[in-house]
């Protein structure tokens, strides 16, 4: 018997300097999101030299991030504690939040991956929140579903590894399936969201069908397209 777990995949892009600066910015704004979270470094896309590899690893570890494996470079380039990753990790879509100045609120990670072996995973309890989520508050629950009995205000956000259920108005931002769970859905009794994200794929208020506003809806992915539909 073993234990299954989820890991985020960091996949650097060129130019590397820009990517490192961006990583810094994201880590700073969402430290709680990264704290103690196992990370996998995917270097397949940039084919670095041996020196560059050590530098990237050092840069990431200096920020207190916990690397558990590196993919895409020869094993003997890596320190012993970092195992090369067996098998191919299926990388999830990447979410780029709209620019909105510096925000103290946590943002979704640069990339999140769903490790296939965890798909069979053990059932996790859902997080139940029985009061309104106020503007500026974040509910972050990477382990499963989030159920809100009350409304989610404009400027609030819910980040869930599983589905999001809102028994009230959803006026803020909802990120479901952040661990790469494409089956995650977002449900709400009154739809007025700022942004809806499932597994990194997103729709902003501009993309919403206006006739759905104020109605009871569910959002789900259908072959990499998000469908938001009325429930009756």
């Amino acid at each position: 018997m073993g234990r299954s777990y989820l890991a985020f995949v960091l996949a650097p892009e060129l130019p590397l300097v820009d990517w490192l600066v961006e990583l810094d910015r994201r880590v700073e704004s969402s430290l709680s999101f990264f704290a103690n979270r196992p990370l996998v470094l995917d270097l397949v896309g940039i084919s670095p030299t041996k020196t560059e590899t050590s530098e990237i690893i050092a840069f990431i570890e200096e920020r207190g991030l916990r690397l558990i494996a590196v993919e895409g470079v020869p094993t003997d380039w890596l320190p012993e504690r970092l195992a090369p990753l067996p098998g191919k990790v299926q990388a999830a879509g990447m979410f780029q939040p709209p620019e909105e100045g510096k925000s103290p609120r946590p943002e979704p990670p640069p990339a999140a991956a769903w490790q296939p072996e965890t798909a069979t995973g053990v059932p996790c309890a859902a997080l139940l929140v029985s009061e309104p989520v106020r503007s500026g508050q974040s509910i972050i629950y990477p382990h499963g579903d989030v159920i809100i009995v009350g409304s989610v205000a404009s400027g609030a956000e819910i980040i869930a590894g599983g589905s999001i259920h809102v028994y009230g108005s959803l006026r803020g931002r909802a990120f479901a399936g952040t661990n790469g769970n494409t089956n995650a859905r977002i449900f709400c009794s009154k739809f007025d969201a700022e942004i809806m994200v499932i597994d990194g794929l997103y729709k902003t208020a501009d993309d919403f069908d206006h006739s759905l506003r104020g109605t009871q809806v569910q959002a789900r992915l259908d072959r990499n397209v998000m469908n938001i539909e009325q429930m009756s």
Partner: peptide
């Protein structure tokens, strides 16, 4: 109203 909502969150 939004600012008030933020304040209520802090009160809680």
């Amino acid at each position: 109203v939004r600012d008030s909502d933020r304040i209520i969150g802090l009160l809680d």
